[in-house]
Write a protein that binds this DNA or RNA. Structure first.
Lengths: 201, 201
DNA sequence: TAAGTTAGTTATCACTTACTAACTAACGGC
DNA sequence: GCCGTTAGTTAGTAAGTGATAACTAACTTA
């Protein structure tokens, strides 16, 4: 019968949900599939989460927690502003690589339509990521590392867009390239800019 | 009874599918919902498409056709390389704005898991968009508009990533900003680069 | 205008879904 | 070693799913 402590089981279910969401898609994932993955009957899941939506709620909370804790570590290890940007991007992309359901999750109606609160959670996360990036950029502008005429908020959106875009392309392409490396390469191009010197000034 | 010509009805069904996919999500959309939108009973849909998957196939083909036809027009009207990049981005984002189901569609398992051929269609589209962008960039490098040390293929991926990323953020944020304008703003930042002159050389 | 074609209908099937009720057996404190 | 708690089971329900079969009525054309 292999009973387990409820906390442990909850974590196991959340993990299984993320793994299965990656395999079959968040909106197609049934409680029964999660249960099978965990090695338990379907109604057992409802002993730990009152409804499917509550399970998704918990999954979202878990992902959000992981995201936020990773940023702090990324900032701590670097001092050069460009390196801090790189570290933040790497941290974010590494998390996506280890939880590859995230991009699909963001577009799932399970979270979008069914769960107003969770939607706000994710928007809040994005906002905080923007603020962290904007802070790094503002420092770098002051210290002369970045262009003096740069709008730090807008530039932060550039970096966010780059992160989300490359994660999206990585997903769509069947994960056919090294996500973290590609992200770094793109960031390098953006740091330099596309225009020849003296053209856009 | 209001019968309609089959071609007309097919187009109507595809349109309704795209609209409903945006509202309820591609993976949650049932044939019955599409039928109701069209104003017809559920089995009538199967008179025009042999299966649900065939319907999605047709939807994908429609979207792909729209995408490709828009690029040609964008290139024709401009001569300056930077303007061509802007025009391509605007064209792509305008299409996403008019068919807002596209981002969610790309992540739907309906298309990913259920439909191998359609997946290849979309990857092919992305590849061709990359090639168009890379061509513009290569021309611009030769003519001195872009940095001589720029890798045109990599820079093309930067622009693609920017397009997909901003479309994604627009979707997630509840379409709370002007997609086309924001895309242009981000492209402008990328054209200039982030680094101060002389820092990254 | 009669006849064939076809866009539509109603009725139904087999299956999956989230969820519930009632029961069972493992664990932990005493 | 007893007993309450609780993680788990089996059995079942109501609603929704994609799809099919058989029929009907509107267009098309000879």
């Amino acid at each position: 019968m292999a009973r387990k402590n409820a906390d442990e089981r909850r974590a196991e279910i959340i993990e299984a949900t993320l793994a299965m969401a990656d395999e079959v898609g968040p909106d197609r994932l049934s409680i029964d599939q999660v249960a099978q993955r965990v090695g338990v009957t379907q109604p057992a899941i409802f002993k730990h989460f009152p409804s499917k939506q509550a399970l998704w709620d918990a999954v979202g909370g878990f992902v959000g927690g992981q995201l936020e804790s990773t940023w702090q570590k990324a900032l701590a290890g670097n001092s050069d502003p460009a390196d801090q940007l790189r570290a933040l991007m790497r941290a974010q992309l590494r998390l996506v690589r280890s939880l590859p359901a995230i991009p699909a999750l963001l577009f799932s109606r399970e979270l979008q339509a069914g769960n107003q609160g969770l939607r706000r959670t994710f928007l809040g996360l994005m906002q905080r990521f923007h603020d962290v990036l904007a802070g790094v950029l503002a420092d770098g502008i002051r210290s002369g590392h970045f262009r003096p005429d740069l709008d730090h908020s807008r530039a932060a959106y550039v970096v966010i867009t780059l992160v989300q875009g490359v994660a999206m392309r990585w997903s769509l392409s069947g994960r056919g390239f090294d996500l973290v490396k590609e992200g770094e390469r793109l960031l390098d191009v953006v740091l330099q800019g596309l225009l020849a010197d003296g053209v856009g000034a």
